[in-house]
């Protein structure tokens, strides 16, 4: 009577064998029907990518180019399909962005190209693909990752954008600074119940939620940095654009509030170890606009100081802020026409577009720096919850 003795890990080759007719079941269970919020929460980060790659390794081992091609095509199409269906769900998009990147890294790490093998163990090198060069497929998967990244940004923007004006401009957290409301301004009433209720804290909580989801999914740290930089760009651009359109936002006290909010955003970056990701720099136009609200705006020296300070703002933006500037109390005055003329004259020779509003839809180009994994493929076990019992560890 045969006894089922489990094989030792060292006996596995880090491949998963599957029948051609099970390919559909594989992508269905692993991609189309996997719920990032349910089963996937307890998976090791990137597990779907490793599983797909281990299946691919087996097809490569069989030297079956057709099997390799159809697996890659089904994988890519299934990822596209799930993103079409659930593309507005940040968790789903983040999950497949990180898995697509992991799959791409695996294709490089095990390609046999010495450039990608520097950090591999001896055993990992033995697991390189043996028959096929998938460089062209790597390009396709990299294109797919770019598409998913853009979708992630859109998804994040849809959640974040409605919070920005309220949290960054309208809501006041510094008590006593604007005790005196700018003259002639009335508080805007909100037409939608939720409007105006977001605070800087809700923005920070949302940023933390995005960040923690991406970390849970094992997103590459370099990719997280790019997402955060893009988030900060959107926050800065939307805030500045609204400031440029609203007189009630152009006061000394709003300048104070914005600077405080920016410092809180910086604090968030520091807390997450993201100070060097370029996110803070994207806020520079907003920071300068806030400073512009607070500096003296009277003498020629003031004009000179403003021109040398506001290098991240266009002339149109500087002039607009000065025109909109509204004194908060009787000790202040409106900015004189003569002063604005002086500024315009000084900035005449600047080479720039006459751009007033920032492009809130701009997306920085994304890159996916190679990030090999030390995980040994032969140790990977497939949880029964994935319903992939038809795969055989080889």
């Amino acid at each position: 009577h045969p006894v089922n003795i489990p094989r030792r890990e060292k006996d596995f080759q880090g491949m998963l064998e599957y029948k051609k007719e099970d390919e559909l079941k594989l992508v269905k269970n692993l991609i189309l029907e996997l719920k990032p919020r349910g089963v996937a929460v307890n998976l090791i980060p990137g597990l779907p990518a490793y599983i797909l790659f281990m299946c691919l390794r087996h097809a490569d081992y069989l030297n079956d180019d057709q099997k390799v091609r159809t697996l890659l095509t089904s994988t890519i199409n299934s990822i596209k399909k799930i993103l079409k269906k659930r593309g507005d769900d940040f968790e789903t998009v983040s999950f497949w962005l990180s898995n697509t990147c992991r799959f791409l890294h695996c294709l490089k790490q095990y390609s046999g190209d010495p450039a990608f093998m520097k950090h591999n163990s001896q055993r990992q090198n033995e697991h390189s693909l043996s028959n096929f060069d998938l460089a062209e497929y790597r390009q396709v998967i990299s294109d797919l990752a770019i598409q998913i990244y853009q979708q992630l940004i859109k998804c994040m923007e849809n959640i974040l954008q409605p919070m920005i004006v309220s949290g960054m401009l309208e809501h006041e957290t510094i008590q006593g600074v604007s005790g005196v409301k700018p003259t002639g301004l009335r508080k805007r009433t909100s037409s939608i119940a939720d409007e105006g209720t977001d605070t800087l804290d809700s923005i920070l909580r949302q940023l933390s939620a995005f960040h923690s989801t991406m970390c849970q999914h094992g997103t590459d740290p370099e990719l997280i940095k790019q997402v955060v930089k893009q988030q900060f760009y959107i926050i800065g651009a939307v805030t500045l654009n609204n400031l440029l359109l609203r007189k009630d936002m152009c006061s000394w006290s709003k300048g104070m509030q914005i600077r405080y909010n920016v410092s809180q955003l910086e604090e968030w970056l520091r807390d997450k170890g993201l100070m060097t990701c370029g996110a803070k720099e994207t806020l520079e136009p907003l920071i300068q606009a806030a400073q512009l609200l607070q500096v003296k705006k009277k003498t020629d020296e003031d004009a000179e100081a403003i021109c040398s300070m506001c290098l991240a703002l266009t002339t149109a933006q500087i002039v607009k802020v000065l025109n909109l500037y509204t004194p908060v109390n009787e000790f202040e005055e409106r900015v004189s026409v003569a002063f604005i003329r002086t500024i315009q004259t000084r900035l005449r020779d600047r080479c720039e577009t006459p751009q007033l509003l920032m492009d809130t839809k701009m997306i920085y180009p994304v890159t996916f720096p190679f990030n090999p994994s030390s995980l040994a493929l032969e140790t990977i076990q497939i949880p029964t919850s994935l319903n992939l019992g038809f795969l055989t560890r080889v």
């Binding site: 596209k80 693909l129 060069d133 062209e136």
Partner: peptide
């Protein structure tokens, strides 16, 4: 075990072409 012969380059369609290929997963049962 590194292979003794060079790997065969698999030509890949573009992402858009791939979508038009109407691969099996499109035929999944409801």
């Amino acid at each position: 075990r590194p292979p003794s012969r060079p790997r065969v380059l698999l030509k890949a369609p573009t992402l858009a072409e791939m979508e038009e290929m109407n691969i099996s997963e499109e035929e999944e049962s409801p």
